[in-house]
Amino acid sequence: MWKEEQIKHYIKEHLNEARFVHSLGVMETSEKLALHYNENSKKARIAGLCHDCAKNLSRDELISIAKENGEELSQIYINAPQLLHGLVGAHISRVVFGIEDEDILNSIRYHTTGRKGMSLLEKIIYISDYIEPSRNFKGINELRRLTYIDLDKVLLKSFDDTITYTVSRGSLLHIDTIEARNYLLYKK
């Protein structure tokens, strides 16, 4: 497996400056949350760093890499290929970086959509992507505070916000996001 510094170098070369800074912010936020929730902080750092490694690939590159690696692409992915960067990022993390830990790979794969029955690491990466220091939107400071109190509550809020935003833009909702939200509601 590549060392963290090697992965940082790859990410810096393959992402624009803002996305690189974002990735470092997700890595740091993930580590803090992992320590708070007794998750493996090294795994959280690596997943946070790698989560957007495919973000700057073109629509055609994302679709091509996904298909080449046996992904069955739903109409949602064909019509909203930006969602594919998680799936393709997991592939790059496995093939290029040599990451074999399935929890890390799933955290990268589902960091955009979430999914039903997310692991603690998956939740940490999803939320870290949402609240890392370069993010700035109304209510972000309260969400950051609540993240250290009730991770599932903040996760549910983020799903609600994502669904509202996606619907307001007339875009397609990924079924994984709906199932993830419903799963959290059933757990209450």
Rank of each mutant, 00 (worst) to 15 (best):
E4D: 05
Q6V: 07
I7N: 03
H9C: 01
H9I: 05
H9G: 04
K12A: 06
K12H: 02
K12L: 04
E13V: 01
H14F: 05
N16D: 14
H22Y: 01
G25L: 05
G25E: 08
A34N: 02
Y37G: 06
A44E: 08
A47S: 03
G48H: 13
C50Q: 11
D60A: 09
E61Y: 04
S64P: 04
E68H: 00
G70Q: 05
S74Y: 02
N79W: 07
A80Q: 01
L87N: 12
L87I: 15
G89I: 05
A90H: 01
H91R: 14
H91W: 14
S93E: 04
S93P: 10
R94C: 14
F97M: 15
E102F: 07
L105R: 12
L105C: 12
N106W: 07
T113I: 08
T113E: 02
E122V: 06
K123A: 07
I127S: 01
R145D: 12
L146H: 11
I149D: 13
L151P: 14
D152Q: 11
K157A: 09
S158A: 15
I163W: 04
T164C: 08
V167E: 10
V167I: 15
S171F: 14
L172N: 12
T177W: 04
T177C: 09
I178K: 11
E179C: 06
L184T: 08
L184I: 13
K188C: 08
